[in-house]
C-alpha cells in the first residue's frame, strides 16, 4: 500500500480516495505490483547511490582485475565481479542508476511538456497554425533520429544536458500527435460546448476541461517512452558519444566491457540486465496504467482486487 501510493502520487496528489483506489488496483495485478516495487527501488538507488557507494565504485584494485562473479566470501558489492580496473560491478551499476534515470527522466519531461503544449495548440487553434505544427512534427518524424543525435552530440559535445535535449526533440511528435488527436475528438463533446456557452475562455477550456481528460493517456505514453528513451541513451553511450567517462551509465558500462568479451562476459552482462529489468518494469507498469486510468476498463482490476480482499 505504501509502495503503491508513492508510485501514484504524481498523478493526482489531492485525492486520497483516488490513491487508495489506484493502490487496490495495483494489488490486483501481480506483474504491475512487482514492476512498481522494482522501479521504486531503482529510484531510491538513483537518489542515494552515488553518495552511498560512490567511493567503492571508483576505487581501483588492480589485483582484482576482471574478478569473476559469485565470490560469496567478499563484501556484497563484489558479488557481480569486478571490471577491468578491479572496481566492483554491482557498486558501479548502482551508482550508474542516477545518470541513466536522470537523462531519461529529463528527456521525457521536456518532450512531454513541449509536445503536449504544441498538441493542445494544434488541436484547438486555426487550421493554418495547426497545419504548420503538424508539418513540423512530420519533419522531426522523418529524421533519422539516432543519426541526428550522433552528429549533434559530436558537434556540440556530449553532456547530460545536451543528451537530454537531443533525445527530447526526437520524442516531441509522439506527444504532439496523441494530444492533438484527442483534443480534436474532445472539443466536439457537449461539456466543452457548455463551457463555451457559459463564457469560458479558450485557455480555460484547454487547460481546465480538456487537459485533464488527455492526461491519463499522456501518463501511459510517458511511461512507455521512458523505456524507449533509456534504450536510446544507452545506445548513444554505447557508441561513445553519450555520457563520457568518468561519469557512468549502464549503456557505457556495456560498451566498456565489450573488449573483454572473450574472457570476462560479466562486464557487459550485468548492466544489460539492469537495463532489461527497468524497461520491462516500465512496459508492465504502462500496460497496467492503460487499464487503471481508463474508466471503461477499470472494472477488470477492481473486480480482481475485491475477490482477493
Amino acid at each position: 500500500m505504501t509502495v503503491s501510493s508513492t508510485r501514484t502520487d504524481s498523478l493526482s496528489a489531492d485525492e486520497p480516495a483516488f490513491l487508495r483506489r489506484m493502490g487496490r488496483m495495483l494489488l490486483a495485478d501481480k506483474f504491475a505490483l512487482v514492476a512498481a516495487v522494482f522501479l521504486v527501488v531503482m529510484v531510491v538507488l538513483a537518489i542515494v547511490g552515488p553518495a552511498w557507494l560512490g567511493e567503492e565504485a571508483l576505487k581501483q584494485n588492480l589485483r582484482g582485475r576482471n574478478l569473476a562473479p559469485f565470490d560469496w566470501s567478499r563484501d556484497w558489492f563484489w558479488w557481480f565481479g569486478a571490471d577491468a580496473l578491479g572496481r566492483p560491478l554491482l557498486a558501479r551499476i548502482i551508482v550508474a542508476t542516477q545518470n541513466t534515470l536522470l537523462v531519461a527522466a529529463g528527456a521525457v519531461l521536456i518532450s512531454a511538456v513541449i509536445g503536449t503544449f504544441l498538441g493542445l495548440l494544434a488541436g484547438f487553434s486555426s487550421p493554418r497554425v495547426s497545419q504548420a505544427i503538424m508539418r513540423l512534427a512530420d519533419v522531426i518524424m522523418s529524421f533519422p533520429s539516432l543519426l541526428i543525435a550522433v552528429i549533434v552530440l559530436y558537434l556540440l559535445g556530449s553532456s547530460i544536458l545536451n543528451l537530454m535535449l537531443v533525445l527530447s526533440i526526437t520524442r516531441i511528435p509522439v506527444y504532439l500527435r496523441t494530444t492533438r488527436a484527442e483534443v480534436l475528438e474532445i472539443r466536439e463533446r457537449m461539456f466543452v460546448q457548455a463551457a463555451r456557452v457559459m463564457g469560458a475562455s479558450s485557455r480555460r477550456i484547454l487547460f481546465r476541461h480538456i487537459l485533464p481528460i488527455v492526461f491519463p493517456t499522456l501518463t501511459t505514453l510517458a511511461t512507455l517512452d521512458f523505456a524507449y528513451v533509456m534504450l536510446a541513451e544507452s545506445a548513444l553511450s554505447f557508441l561513445g558519444i553519450g555520457i563520457q567517462p568518468p561519469d557512468i551509465t549502464w549503456g557505457l558500462m556495456i560498451s566498456q566491457g565489450r573488449q573483454y568479451l572473450t574472457n570476462a562476459w560479466w562486464l557487459s552482462f550485468w548492466p544489460g540486465l539492469a537495463i532489461i529489468f527497468t524497461t520491462l518494469s516500465l512496459n508492465l507498469l504502462s500496460n497496467w496504467l492503460r487499464i487503471a486510468l481508463d474508466p471503461t476498463q477499470r472494472w477488470r482490476l477492481e473486480m480482481r482486487g475485491e475477490t482477493r480482499g
Binding site: S234, A235, R258, L261, T262, S268, G272, L280
Partner: peptide, 22 residues
C-alpha cells in the same frame, strides 16, 4: 513479446557473439 521489446539490441548482440561465436 514484452521481454523482447525491453532488450537493448547492442546488449543482445554482445551476448549472441559470446554464445554463438566465441
Amino acid at each position: 513479446s514484452l521481454i523482447g521489446a525491453s532488450v537493448p539490441d547492442f546488449w543482445l548482440a554482445i551476448v549472441a557473439i559470446v554464445i554463438f561465436s566465441i
